[in-house]
Write a protein that binds this DNA or RNA. Structure first.
Lengths: 341, 341
DNA sequence: GTGAAAGCGCTAACAC
DNA sequence: GTGTTAGCGCTTTCAC
């Protein structure tokens, strides 16, 4: 039987067409496609050539309807798009995720969360289109994602801010240690009036890094210097240092919670004739281009960003497949020494 | 009847459960979900509250299997991930796409093309998981995508390099005009020995911009200066200007095919004591942070990047829905005047 | 306006 | 190892 249509519209070949052509049943075709070992070499070859001749491609919807798994996972992009793309951190996480998944049968889908209709994203995720999702934590209200965790496999990159039960799966870097180590460097350099430009206090990373700064100071028996909050961006850092110097022009040490903010702060300090590190020693977090290209280059904390990406991906896949996981995994950070202290 | 399982595993409520609870048929539920007008207000309310009470979410796989449309479109990310994220151009295109789609029933999926298995991406796209795809053109071999155009709705952002029939749908900016205008500025400033750092000659944008430069020079009766090729990145631009000055240190005008390359070139020129624009006038293409933050700020060509994103999205949606489209759409560019000429 | 019935294209027991 | 038989959860004619 030949497929003839009045309008010439071609229909994509189905698994059934492959079966007919190869002279086997649909089950056998399905087995070949899914790599089952229970197929004789002859049958396999017959099916494979039928597939090639027909240019057959399995229908994903049918497959996942029947098997109840899509073999695709989502990485939700919750921030406004422009911030997401301008922050090298996200790019590295994604690289790690993509790298891990390339070696797995899972496809990565970056889901741009609609700001206009937040429910839409969560509906999509619950609709079975993906087997699970990766959520990069943000300051935004992440309650809806936390709630989702009970319905589909979910892994958070960074601790979510919303109250989450003891069941949220989280991969985070040791932000408190990062703050502590970066501050300790300042202490070790003999700095005594150590201020900080903290990250947003509605983000876990912002809170934990500030806590680390405070801990290091207390451990050293020093009085914490002034604190100003920035939004993790260069301009936020610039604005923060202005306020900070207004409040206390006598600081001799400064811990900045992100390299982006530090680069903004450094520029203002240069304008004001403050020489780093002669007048003020500066340390930061993130080993990205902002840290390497600032003037002077920053002594900073490197987070294993790509590893974090790989780890959230691996954890999610294990979660989906029911294999054992660590519910909370904290990754270690490293000190990178440069000229800013 | 109550859903009781030995293992306590909860099953997602189906459309049928909603129908039962609302006391209507499955068809009616389906009509409500899909916004059909042929439902009485009472039936609609009954269904809606049943949906809310059950927390029902339609199964996407089943829906698209039955309706043969997924209401989701893919934006294929073909470049290596890191380049993709470091280029502000892509971010802006995506913003445009996301903005348009937010107002439509379509969901955007960024598909990270697997380098290890190129066929995988194209199989995914053919598998019916998406109704169509957006492809950002690259220097990479894009033959596989061009071929795909015959099988699923596809819109190219930028002219693909591979031979494409007269049926490829393309949205591009007027790169030739961009090159012409940027070069004309140099001519108007009285520059006579005008060189260029061209983009990669295996990318349409690189080729067209170089052609524009040449056209402007010929129209002005000037002999084209030296040409060096860069890879659109700052370091590529730096390397190119070194070679270029080696070949001809007497240039008084320079057209650079991307702001990123121009920022790299500017740095080298500064190092060598070449003062811009006193010694050499420079123009470029792209109005991004590289153009605005370079020293001096660049006179450059602004491409309507976000509009391009909106346009490719709109074109694809129209294509999917069988509405009329312009097969090739060329967007106009604008001159931005700053201090580099 | 509403319901019944017939699939969409595939996987997954189960029997052979 | 292979085929047969049921669905997966939804949309969609087609009668009513």
């Amino acid at each position: 039987m030949v497929d003839v249509r009045m309008n010439g519209e071609r229909t994509a070949p189905t698994l059934e067409a492959v079966a007919e052509r190869a002279g086997v049943s649909r089950s056998t075709v399905s087995r070949v496609i899914n790599g089952s070992p229970k197929v004789t070499p002859e049958a396999r070859r017959a099916v494979e050539s039928a597939i090639a001749e027909l240019g057959y491609v399995p229908n994903l919807a049918a497959r996942s309807l029947a098997s109840r798994r899509s073999h695709s996972i989502a990485l939700v992009i919750p921030e406004d798009t422009s911030r997401f793309f301008s922050d090298p951190y996200f790019a590295e996480v994604i690289e790690g995720v993509a790298e891990y998944l390339a070696r797995s049968p899972y496809t990565l889908t970056l889901l741009v969360a609609s700001e206009t209709d937040p429910g839409r994203t969560s509906r999509y995720l619950q609709g079975g289109g993906v087997d699970g999702a990766l959520v990069l934590s943000t300051h935004r209200d992440d309650r809806s994602y936390v709630a989702l965790a009970g319905r589909i496999p979910l892994v958070f990159s960074g601790r979510p801010m919303s109250p989450h039960g003891d069941d949220a799966v989280i991969v985070d870097v040791d932000n408190a240690a990062a703050g502590r180590i970066a501050t300790q460097v300042l202490v070790d350099r003999g700095r005594r009036n150590i201020a900080t430009i903290a990250g947003p206090q509605d983000m876990a990373a912002g809170i934990d890094r500030l806590a680390g700064w405070r801990e290091a100071l207390e451990a050293a028996g020093l009085t914490p210097g002034v604190v100003e909050e920035g939004d993790f961006t260069p301009s936020g850092g610039a604005a923060a240092i202005v306020r900070l110097l207004d409040r206390d022009p006598t600081i001799d040490g400064l811990f900045v919670a992100s390299a982006q903010m530090a680069s903004g702060a450094l520029e203002i300090m240069k304008q004001r004739g403050i020489v780093v590190p002669r007048d003020v020693s500066v340390t930061s977090i993130d080993n990205d281009r902002f840290a390497a290209e600032s003037d002077p280059p920053l002594t900073t904390i490197e987070q294993p960003t790509q590893l974090q990406g790989q780890t959230i991906a691996e954890t999610l896949v294990r979660l989906i497949e029911g294999r054992p996981i660590e519910r909370v995994k904290i990754l270690d950070v490293t000190l990178i020494e440069r000229e800013s202290v």
